[in-house]
Amino acid sequence: MNNKIIRTKLKVVNNEQINSSHFRLYLTMPDDCPPITPGQFAEIYVPPTLNSFLRIPLSIHFISDKKNEIQFLIQLKGEGTKYLKTLKKNDFVDIIMPLGKGFSIPRQRKLALIAGGCGVAPLLFLSDKLYEHGNELEIYLGFRNHNQVMLINEFKKYGKLVIATDDGSMGEKGVITQVFERHLDDFDFIYACGPTSMLQSLMYLSEKYNIKCEISLETLMACGLGACLCCAVPTKKGNMRACVDGPVFDTKDLIELNE
């Protein structure tokens, strides 16, 4: 493997509730951390429960070099994420990272970032890096309703921010891909993460308007290391492994997405 991967124990700095179903976990950065690209992920150990058994894959949400911190944005799903919610300051987590292939980082382009729900997770770190490289960003975030809207302050410093909710209770009304199409401009690149249906619509849009589009897929994974082939993603070049060939893929390489 070319990418250097480490397994280490990291100390919890903070565990912050964001809304009823999301929280943010702050860990100290390891000293020997290899370079991390936005879109890469980590596998975090959780003790086995009655229904879960494997590590939990989580996108790297943000890295603060100043504070020497790495952050994860986590949606409560089942027992594993419930355990992560109980972690307190000074607890330790067993983590393997950085894994997978991240987003490409161009310079001085006009870019659109689109996320639905917890899909915002990898896009904050991505916005930070894209901004640093002199790109012009427009960020489109879609949520179910105003209670689910999050991270407005974090994102707005990187460029134009458009919020949409399915019920119109905040921002523009409608699904984020439709809202995005209304604003569509001469973008060089689209980046996205979110529910499969949203990513599928973006695949059509990127083809229709001929804009290069990279999406991050949350395929079920067992090893996260390229060894088990549980995470197969059908592509035009045959099955690829989401954990090492992805999780970020160029939509022009993909076939239909699986629900």
Binding site: F53, L220, L229, C230, A232, N258
Partner: peptide
């Protein structure tokens, strides 16, 4: 090419 996704599910003490 193997089987389509999903290819794995976690269970009690196994997969």
């Amino acid at each position: 090419e193997g089987n389509p996704a999903p290819r794995m599910a976690e269970t009690s003490a196994g997969m």
